[in-house]
Computed example of a mutant assay.
Amino acid sequence: MALASARSAPIRREAKAQPAGGPTQQSLKSAQTRARLIDATIRCIVKLGYANTTTPQVAAEAGLSRGAMLHHFENGAALIKAAIVELHDKRLRAFRRAAEANEHETSTMVNAYWRQLQKPAFVAFHELALAARTNTDLARILQPLQDEFREKFNAQAVQLFPEWQSDPVGFDLAMTLSQTLLEGMAINLLTGAMEERMVEPMLRLVEQQIRTMRPDMKGQAR
Results as ranks from 00 to 15, higher is better:
residue 86 E to I: 06
residue 102 N to K: 08
residue 56 P to C: 11
residue 84 I to D: 01
residue 86 E to L: 09
residue 59 A to I: 02
residue 109 M to D: 11
residue 78 A to H: 15
residue 96 R to E: 06
residue 114 W to M: 08
residue 81 K to H: 14
residue 67 G to I: 10
residue 67 G to R: 08
residue 89 D to F: 07
residue 41 T to L: 09
residue 110 V to T: 02
residue 47 K to H: 14
residue 119 K to T: 14
residue 114 W to I: 05
residue 50 Y to L: 07
residue 50 Y to E: 07
residue 75 N to Y: 10
residue 78 A to Y: 10
residue 77 A to Q: 08
residue 99 A to P: 02
residue 123 V to L: 12
residue 69 M to F: 03
residue 72 H to R: 10
residue 98 A to T: 04
residue 122 F to G: 00
residue 41 T to H: 04
residue 59 A to E: 01
residue 66 R to D: 08
residue 73 F to Q: 00
residue 66 R to T: 14
residue 118 Q to C: 11
residue 60 A to F: 11
residue 110 V to A: 02
residue 90 K to W: 09
residue 75 N to T: 08
residue 115 R to D: 12
residue 105 E to M: 13
residue 108 T to Q: 14
residue 62 A to V: 00
residue 96 R to F: 00
residue 111 N to H: 14
residue 88 H to L: 08
residue 114 W to Q: 04
residue 54 T to G: 04
residue 122 F to C: 03
residue 70 L to V: 10
residue 96 R to Y: 02
residue 93 R to S: 13
residue 72 H to M: 10
residue 101 A to H: 05
residue 103 E to K: 04
residue 57 Q to W: 05
residue 46 V to I: 13
residue 80 I to Q: 01
residue 63 G to K: 06
residue 115 R to G: 05
residue 84 I to K: 01
residue 85 V to Y: 02
residue 70 L to N: 06
residue 70 L to Q: 06
residue 81 K to T: 15
residue 91 R to I: 05
residue 44 C to T: 05
residue 118 Q to T: 14
residue 64 L to Q: 13
residue 105 E to F: 13
residue 54 T to Y: 03
residue 93 R to P: 00
residue 107 S to F: 09
residue 90 K to M: 11
residue 108 T to V: 11
residue 48 L to E: 15
residue 64 L to D: 09
residue 96 R to Q: 07
residue 54 T to D: 06
residue 49 G to N: 03
residue 122 F to T: 03
residue 91 R to T: 09
residue 45 I to L: 12
residue 50 Y to F: 15
residue 65 S to I: 09
residue 121 A to W: 01
residue 79 L to R: 00
residue 90 K to T: 11
residue 77 A to Y: 01
residue 85 V to G: 03
residue 104 H to K: 10
residue 53 T to E: 07
residue 101 A to Q: 07
residue 45 I to Q: 00
residue 58 V to F: 03
residue 98 A to S: 14
residue 47 K to N: 12
residue 71 H to G: 08
residue 45 I to S: 00
residue 104 H to V: 04
residue 79 L to D: 03
residue 73 F to Y: 09
residue 63 G to N: 10
residue 69 M to I: 04
residue 97 R to A: 12
residue 62 A to D: 00
residue 61 E to M: 10
residue 110 V to Y: 01
residue 66 R to K: 13
residue 97 R to G: 06
residue 42 I to P: 00
residue 87 L to W: 00
residue 94 A to F: 09
residue 82 A to G: 09
residue 107 S to V: 12
residue 46 V to S: 04
residue 59 A to F: 01
residue 53 T to C: 07
residue 122 F to L: 06
residue 105 E to H: 15
residue 112 A to L: 10
residue 87 L to S: 02
residue 54 T to E: 06
residue 98 A to V: 06
residue 77 A to G: 10
residue 47 K to I: 10
residue 98 A to G: 05
residue 121 A to Q: 08
residue 44 C to Q: 06
residue 41 T to D: 07
residue 102 N to R: 12
residue 92 L to A: 06
residue 52 N to M: 11
residue 109 M to F: 05
residue 101 A to E: 10
residue 94 A to I: 09
residue 93 R to F: 08
residue 42 I to C: 02
residue 75 N to S: 14
residue 122 F to W: 12
residue 79 L to F: 06
residue 58 V to S: 01
residue 92 L to E: 04
residue 73 F to P: 02
residue 116 Q to N: 13
residue 45 I to T: 07
residue 62 A to Y: 02
residue 46 V to L: 11
residue 72 H to Y: 15
residue 77 A to I: 06
residue 65 S to V: 12
residue 53 T to L: 07
